[in-house]
Design a protein around this nucleic acid. Structure first.
Length: 288
DNA sequence: ATAGCTACCTGGGCGC
DNA sequence: TGCGCCCAGGTAGCTA
């Protein structure tokens, strides 16, 4: 699943393969991929064609192409979106949703997306900050990131720590995998109350989030299944370093207790019941 | 206002 | 062999 490290790997790939090139044409093969572009397919195709790509930027899990004339092409990979660089005229992948061709006649860039939760939109004049990002917090790998301010924002909320971690308006870029890994590293249970946790404990969770995402980025991200690869179709290697996520029934790397999986927020949460004891008062049911 | 729930999607895996 | 069900989960938009 693409979270911050995976999206950053994709951003770097697009910097290498798209920046400096002029888009000749864009073809939308699946309308849902541009559902956020309310003016529709024909408008999207016409608006994007002819622009030169100046830069690729990212905040959290969003990335956007900075185009000449100050326009933005905003993209989100959702669950299964991929940008792939490939030779012109290759057979079309069954999950191909949008194809970009370029004036230089070089490799095409394809947007593939099996589950179609991802997509893109063209936002004229919004290269500096696309409108849909207004509520997305600065992410932990941004140089403007303020850890202390993020601790304060979490303390001000009345919810459980994992909900706060996954709230993209509080801290962006963290998804289910890195949330569980961060909580495991900080030895904090997912259901602990943001009110009851101390400032230093919240700080440890956020520092763990930054650390784990930095480490994942350095090995190309996490390819837990086949749904995340870089622009060249290669997997990342961080799945080998996961301590908690997806490790149900395996020993905790720290204490040897078997990792558990709970349903939480209609998702799975993986944790060590010994290193990450659940809150006492919360009344959350746990099998003995 | 804030917190928390559901819809949206597809294909792999599983049980029968 | 095939059918049907469940599961994965990021985000927008809804409700209370």
């Amino acid at each position: 699943m693409p979270e911050l490290p995976e999206v950053e790997v994709v951003r770097r790939g697009l910097v290498e393969h798209a920046v400096g090139r002029r888009i000749r044409a864009v073809t939308v093969l699946h309308e849902r991929a541009i559902r956020r572009h309310l003016a529709g397919r024909a408008d999207f195709e016409a608006a994007v064609a002819g622009h030169r790509v100046i830069d690729i930027r990212r905040r959290g899990k969003y990335l956007w192409w900075v185009l000449d004339d100050g326009d933005a092409l905003l993209a989100h990979l959702g669950m299964s979106g991929q940008f792939r660089v490939g030779p012109t005229g290759e057979h079309k992948h069954p999950h191909l949703r949008v194809r970009f061709t370029f004036d230089d006649g070089g490799p095409v860039i394809d947007f593939l997306d099996q589950r179609t939760f991802g997509g893109m939109s063209f936002l004229p004049g919004q290269a500096d900050e696309p409108g849909p990002l207004a509520h997305i917090a600065i992410d932990p790998l941004d140089e403007q990131y303020d850890l202390g301010a993020t601790v304060a924002r979490i303390k001000a909320k009345n919810t459980e720590i994992k909900r706060a971690l996954l709230d993209q308006s509080v801290v962006s870029g963290v998804g289910n995998i890195y949330a569980d890994e961060s909580l495991w590293r900080a030895q904090v249970h997912y259901a602990r109350s943001t009110q009851a946790l101390t400032g230093p404990a919240i700080r440890r969770v956020l520092q763990a989030a930054r650390d784990v995402m930095t480490e994942a980025l350095s090995v190309g991200g996490t390819s837990f299944d086949a749904l995340y690869v870089n622009v060249n179709g290669d997997s990342g290697y961080f799945d080998r370093s996961l301590a908690a996520y997806g490790q149900e029934g395996r020993p905790c790397p720290r204490c040897g207790t078997l990792i558990r999986r709970d349903a939480f927020m209609n998702r799975s949460s993986f944790y060590c019941p010994r290193c990450q004891p659940p809150p006492r008062v919360s009344g959350r049911g746990r099998a003995s």
